[in-house]
Amino acid sequence: MNQNQALFEYLLRLGDSDMVLAQRLCELVGKAPALEEEMAIGNVALDLIGQARSWLEYAAELEDAGRSADDLAFTRDERAYRNLLLVEQDNGNFADTMARQFLFDLWHYHLLSALSQSSDERIVAIAAKGLKEVTYHLRRSGNWIKRLGDGTEESHAKMQEAIDEIWTYAGEMFIADEVDSLLADAGIAPDLNALQQKWQSDLTTTLEEATLACPPMDAFMQTGSKQGMHTEQLGYLLAEMQFLPRSFPGASW
């Protein structure tokens, strides 16, 4: 694998995670528990779609195979998707949605902070732009973790259950493969161990404040997204997302 192939893979991972999470969040538009939450969730999804577009446009240019960012988004099958297993998980109840969001936002925040120092200028531009948005996302999801964790007996129990439930999908974010190592050596992407330390330290602080217990890092963790091995949930999500462009190829407004 050469550096360009690795970078293409890496950009797919970044773009796919943003897009799949955005698609999940959009499922809540029209049925969020409160209007303010609906606006927030919709806005977060919009930011993520914008970021996904930037990453996938870069990926498409790099691949230079006549595929556009749209083609990458709407014509790849499940096994070609490279998003984290975490983001494809169902919305569940509001605590589940927020647990998933918080674990993602915290990773996303530290990842984009690191990518803002990348040796690749275009990555720096996209990451620095996204970082401002993600900082805002993180503040909000972190506040919800604290509010629900340190809330009533019921909200505490649900929040704890949500963290425990999603935990098995968190470890994957920090398991490096050939792509990660190659790009880390080139100064393009960050070292995942360093990323994990920052993530874990912030996570511990927030969970403590929220009076929640942090599950063990050495618990069994699901993996596979980097090889395109996804959980059952992704197929359904893509079926809905890709239905229109696949049924009516080339359709435009």
Binding site: A52, L56, E61, A69, D70
Partner: peptide
């Protein structure tokens, strides 16, 4: 939703 490359 997703556009062609920004540059072009």
């Amino acid at each position: 939703m997703i556009r062609e490359s920004d540059n072009s």
